[in-house]
């Protein structure tokens, strides 16, 4: 049996890669808006001191509060990676995803979190998405085509990369509601369709497999529909996925004005 001699003269040295030492945690003040409609109708802010690292997200800070300081804080979250659209809230006055916002990028030692505007509050930071989902469904968010590809003998619909680019961006919507929260029209008009719904109407209208353009244009061409948008651009400013609802709305309007076919 072959033996391997290990030299004892040369001792194994630790690797020379320079691993940065963890930075000292900083303490910030997290102000959480508290509101429980079953108890009282007043909103109050509670302050918590939180240790944070440069990578700590706002959601992690809220979860720290829940784990260590006050478990009764109501917050909705799920994926923690900006995919599910659950943790939208107003952070230092602007609608953002809590899991996608690092405390270090806010450049403030005081972070205020509030529920998103223009949505009814369920409790604390959790808001009701009933209207958002209902408007989304009204836009018929599916391909309308009589020659469905599930018919026996039918072939798949062919699309070129150029065809795909016309709507792909708008299909990345995660329905987080940030756009509706930032919209100035949504702030005053409770019947307005909103940027999320209008962007989805464009997403399916621009899809060359779809034949429901007429139906959708009829839905948005109403008094609280597309004409209430004044292109303030706030929806696109806050969108965490680059969907750009403001662009979708103007392009959809192009169909109604006859600039697009």
């Amino acid at each position: 049996m072959a033996t391997v001699e290990v030299s004892t003269e040369k001792k194994a040295e630790p690797p020379q890669t320079s691993v940065p030492a963890p930075s000292k945690p900083k303490t910030i003040t997290l102000r959480i808006s508290r509101f429980n409609p079953s108890e009282n109708a007043e909103t109050k802010f509670e302050e918590f001191k939180i240790p944070v690292q440069k990578w700590t997200t706002v959601l992690e800070a809220i979860l720290y509060v829940k784990e260590n300081l006050d478990h009764s804080v109501a917050v909705r979250y799920s994926c923690r990676q900006a995919s599910c659209g659950s943790c939208g809230m107003k952070i230092n006055g602007k609608p953002r995803l809590a899991c996608y916002t690092k405390i270090s990028e806010l450049e403030s030692n005081v972070v205020t979190v509030e529920p998103m505007n223009n949505f009814p509050i369920i409790r604390d930071l959790a808001v009701d998405f009933k209207q958002l989902f209902s408007t989304h469904k009204k836009m018929k968010p599916f391909i309308i085509n009589e020659e469905s590809e599930v018919q026996p003998g039918a072939k798949e619909f062919i699309q070129t990369p150029q065809d795909l680019e016309k709507f792909l961006q708008f299909s990345y919507c995660i329905k987080c509601g940030l756009c509706n929260s930032a919209c100035p029209t949504m702030a005053t008009d409770k019947s307005f369709v909103g940027p999320q719904g209008l962007a989805q109407a464009y997403r399916y209208t621009a899809d060359n497999r779809d034949q429901g353009k007429k139906d959708r244009l009829k839905i948005v061409d109403q008094s609280h529909g597309i004409w209430r948008c004044h292109f303030a651009g706030s929806c696109s400013n806050v969108c965490p996925k680059g969907v750009d609802p403001a662009m979708a709305i103007q392009l959809l309007r192009g169909y109604l004005l006859g600039f697009r076919k």
Partner: peptide
């Protein structure tokens, strides 16, 4: 409870 911003927000 609707939390609409209103004219102030607009």
């Amino acid at each position: 409870f609707s939390n609409r911003e209103g004219i102030k927000g607009m």
